[in-house]
Design a binder for these strands. Structure first.
Lengths: 95, 95
DNA sequence: AATGTTTGGTTTATAAAATAAACCAGTTTA
DNA sequence: TAAACTGGTTTATTTTATAAACCAAACATT
């Protein structure tokens, strides 16, 4: 079997973790993602924006208890990209 | 489940492909790897050296029919690292 | 016997990505 | 009201990946 391309947007530890979380929960706060991934806020902010620009996640900013709140959801495009990535990975793994 | 670290040496499309090949064949020529991975010679040379420095592959240079020949083998350390990587990946993938 | 071409690479330079550090607006606490 | 904290963003630095240039030796051509 030939090696399939690995979507560079997803082939990043942090972005993959973000997507993995968002797929399991459908919606999450910035702070939740930060805690679960152990990422720094700066890194998380940058990587979330890349996922947003790729159309893989949707980001809504609002306020909650006077504090800014960033809510993230995976999009259908993101779900598809993730499953394609997982499938492509198979070509590199032992059966 | 928590996200496990993904060995940065292996979390690279080309290096992962090289390792995947070497694990399946035990030994391969530079030119074979180049063809199978569709990599440029330069990129392959660089990435093979990283794998070598990590102790994941062993590289022997010799001559064959008057031409230089580079033979690559995966080491036991490399095999372990690969299987640890695969295991770590599971923490990012749907069950 | 020079001239060009191919093999089998390495080295160096450039582009892209990941990460960390610095910063900022607003809020709460002392 | 000053300090410290929340919830981030922006910018700078480091690391990676990739591509381009290069090289030595072999072979083929005239």
């Amino acid at each position: 079997m030939d090696f399939k391309e690995l979507d560079p947007i997803l082939h990043s530890q942090l972005r993959l973790a973000i997507m993995s979380l968002l797929i399991s929960v459908k919606e999450a706060e910035f702070t939740f993602l930060k805690e679960k991934t152990s990422a720094t806020a700066g890194n998380l902010s940058v990587q979330l924006n890349k996922l947003k620009e790729a159309g893989y996640v949707e980001i809504v900013k609002q306020f909650k208890n006077n504090y800014p709140q960033t809510i993230c959801k995976v999009t259908p495009v993101g779900v598809d990209a993730f499953s394609a990535y997982v499938k492509a990975l198979q070509s590199y793994l032992p059966k």
